[in-house]
Design a binder for these strands. Structure first.
Lengths: 343, 343
DNA sequence: TGCGCAGATGATAGCGCTCCCACCTGCCGG
DNA sequence: CCGGCAGGTGGGAGCGCTATCATCTGCGCA
């Protein structure tokens, strides 16, 4: 550090430097750059010229320290590469960028309360103005409660216990679309391989599936559960393939669906001839693996944008009432589903 | 803001508060928390107790402003969900976290110089101590040169023009493993669907493939090019499938490989009976799609760790000489490759 | 016995910005 | 004609922390 206040070589220009060059005060520079209304056009122009000339860039740390506002939001995600979370994160990033916000990501290796807590704390330390939780909040600790109280937080998994705002794809609808599609093809009933129960996404799908079957007076088969990985789909497929009257399966994610299909294949049951399979997500490979997968496409980009929009509103007015928002998924029919064969 | 220096309700506790409770000076608190050696164990304990009692959390903005060090590194990635980049990012995140660094991600929608420039500037504004570029630097602008001069930067794509340090998977080896595997199965020669030329990953694979063929005196078929997407693999597959003497194809990514396989399938050429296909990456689905894919696994986690380790060393001593580092991929043989049929 | 040095602690001065308030123009109405 | 009021501007005072230097202890050694 240096005693002299005069400009130094090797130090980036500060607001004072801009002020000097523009012939105004540092204060005016601040206002001009912040888009404050009470600044003459002429003055603003002078400031901008000086900024250009010096190659001035704002010092974010100073701004945050002084104002408490960071223009940054945080996203908590699970440290894995499931397609859905990746796609969602991208949607959020793009939307945040457009809103002039930076995104700070904190990943957690597990869904433990303490792990999520620590991810949220890391974000809080970075003075984020809001958070988006892309993981299910299984248990809301005192610490988390305090954080969500202090920092506007929304969750895109819609944890049922939380005190946070919720944005979500209508997963129940996704499940209903899939299940009804299979019934429409003439199948007696539809089996289901669900995601982990901790995820609301997973349990909403399960509920939607069950609702359709019950509404139609069909037998509701026991539900199987995976962990989103292809491998868990495979394990469940090995079970399903051994049950003779299984002819239609709704799987809670595309990656698991391919695992299921592989297992069925190995057991000699053909898809879609013997068994129809529907997934969820519409990953890039869904169309190109064999057989191409009938699935329910999720509008992840839209979803990210909606989450950010919601959060912005929440940040602007923390007291405003907000009802949960949701976007609609859509069915994409491909080759993994076929009409039930006459018995 | 407030005139009084005494504690206020509703304001989080600061270092001065901790100092008061612990009965030491703010300075000592700073040193104790920074792990400075010249602090008595007893004093440190008192400080930690006070921290605990007050629920004190450091103010990062203030630390950055004052010290210039942010304990944050930045990562520039492309705004897509290709498996490789996602996996790599996770490797980086984990390693950085272990090193006590936060990760700030900046995504860019395109590979334009200006887009990458702006992503790097955004990171610079956040006072990152170092950057990892996970995108190819096609053209190094004056601005970028200035940035890489000011902030330690390494690239994991190994752009040939850049003035940055390089960490990479040995892609040439990956290609040689794949190509040799196919030749060993008795195929006359091997065709290649490459990634975009702008990516060094892609061109290294192409070179490795070519080197093996030339070394063995085989015919080097013309090279096809995709954009990493399954769809581009499909397009190229539609071409390859129409060429009668194609019996083995090395594809630069798993996602493209499945696209190729699908196209071949549609043209009535069986994999692996008629044509063997090898991919690169070993994505989670490689084992579960049909046929399961022979591929070259990339050690992304290791790679991320290596990149971070390199960057840490670079940050610690920007002048230290560092040779490019690389990690080794490994071949995973599955069902998409088979011995060439006797002609 | 005393000097000096090293280890432990404290005091002070910023880091670059934004807030609050005072100021200074010019113009309106009384 | 002058007080007042509004829009524009400038002047300080911090924001919470760390760097630098000063200070203060205790101890070894001559």
């Amino acid at each position: 550090m240096d005693k002299h206040t005069t400009r130094e070589a090797g130090r980036p220009p500060g607001m004072t430097d801009v002020a000097r060059v523009a012939g105004v005060s540092a204060q005016t520079v601040s206002r001009a750059l912040a888009g404050h209304p009470n600044v003459q056009e002429k003055t603003r122009a002078k400031v901008l010229a000086a900024v250009e000339q010096l190659g001035y860039r704002k010092n974010n740390a100073a701004r945050v320290l002084s104002s408490g506002r960071s223009r940054t939001i945080g996203v908590v995600t699970l440290q894995t590469s499931f397609y859905s979370r990746t796609a969602l994160t991208h949607g959020i990033e793009r939307a945040a960028q457009e809103a002039g916000y930076a995104v700070s990501a904190a990943t957690t290796a597990s869904l433990d309360t303490s792990a999520i807590e620590s991810a949220m704390l890391r974000l809080a330390d970075q003075h984020v103005e809001g958070m988006i939780l892309a993981v299910p909040l299984i248990h809301v600790s005192r610490q988390i409660e305090q954080l969500t109280g202090a920092v506007p937080t929304i969750t895109v998994d819609g944890s049922r216990t939380s005190a946070t705002e919720v944005v979500a794809v209508d997963q129940s609808l996704a499940a209903r679309l899939a299940t009804r599609h299979l019934l429409d093809l003439g199948h007696e009933t539809v089996w289901h391989v669900a995601g982990p129960r901790a995820w609301l996404d997973a349990s909403s799908r399960s509920q939607g599936w069950r609702a359709v079957l019950e509404g139609e007076g069909r037998v509701v088969p026991p539900e199987l559960e995976g962990d989103w990985s292809p491998e868990s789909g495979y394990r469940n497929g090995l079970i399903l393939g051994r049950i003779p009257d299984v002819t239609a399966v709704f799987v809670a994610s595309d990656e698991m669906a391919f695992g299921v299909i592989r297992a069925l294949h190995e057991l000699g049951r053909r898809v879609p001839d013997d068994i129809s399979v529907v997934g969820v997500d519409d990953i890039a490979l869904a169309e190109y693996c064999s057989p191409s997968l009938t699935t329910v496409a999720q509008p992840f980009a839209e979803m990210g944008a909606l989450a950010v929009a919601h959060l912005m509103r929440y940040i602007a007015d923390p007291d405003a009432a907000m009802e949960p928002a949701s976007v609609e998924p859509s069915l994409v029919v491909r080759a993994s589903t076929a009409p039930a064969r006459r018995v």
